[in-house]
């Protein structure tokens, strides 16, 4: 399957590697014409301001919104910000997902962190598609949060896929969400040695989940 990775800026090569590991053909997207024939698109980590400005300058905003009407888009970190409706500051956003994000929500680089996340939807997708090659049963997903945003608000049509643990074991902020065929993660599955989120995205592109 031909799957696009927005290659304006950021760690698009890491997403391309993950897609290749799963047997798909990653296509770098820099201009609207590059979207042709793709079954889905990943917007990588990077600087959301840079990606947004380049998307506006090279006429990608409207083509990406049209693309999302029929095919999945997954945004990681900067990509999740770019998919959102509101980042609480003026910068170009696709506004496709009914979420509000807070940029650099945890602070600066010194506050970046890694932690294990409980993501029930990954176990479901493995069971449904029977393509999982990892260990069976629920296991945590290792989240790498680098100057990460968080999802402050998720609208009624948005399914929460993962949260950080809150104080006293309660529910913390949202860090992964799905709205139909759109997927947003505040962390970087492309930097983890775990392809389950990429497999979820492939399943979305196939219309399996």
């Amino acid at each position: 399957m031909d799957l696009g990775v927005l290659a304006l800026q950021g760690d698009f090569a890491e997403h391309a590697h993950a897609l290749r590991r799963l047997g798909h053909n990653p296509v770098e997207v820099r201009l609207p014409r590059d979207l042709e024939g793709l079954a889905g698109l990943i917007i990588p980590g990077g600087e959301s301001t840079t990606i947004g400005k380049l998307a506006v300058k090279y006429g990608l905003m409207q083509p990406l919104r049209v693309f999302a009407q029929t095919r999945p888009i997954w945004g990681t970190c900067a990509g999740a910000i770019f998919l959102s409706q509101d980042a609480r500051r003026p910068q170009p956003l696709l506004g496709l997902m009914d979420i509000t994000v807070a940029r650099n929500a945890f602070g600066r680089q010194v506050d970046s962190f890694e932690t294990d996340l409980d993501v029930p939807a990954l176990a479901e997708v493995e069971a449904k598609t029977a393509r999982g090659n990892g260990q069976p049963g629920p296991r945590p997903f290792h989240g790498i949060f680098i100057r990460a945003p968080l999802i402050e608000r998720a609208g009624p049509g948005v399914e929460v896929l993962a949260r950080l643990p809150g104080p006293g074991g309660g529910q913390g902020p949202i860090v992964a969400a799905r709205q139909g065929r759109l997927l947003a993660t505040a962390f970087h599955p492309e930097l983890a040695a775990d392809d389950r989120f990429h497999r979820l995205f492939v399943s979305l592109a196939r219309g399996e989940v």
Partner: peptide, 12 residues
């Protein structure tokens, strides 16, 4: 995390 931030700067 240290190397990861540099990965986010790529192409920039």
């Amino acid at each position: 995390l240290k190397r990861g931030l540099a990965q986010m700067l790529k192409g920039g």
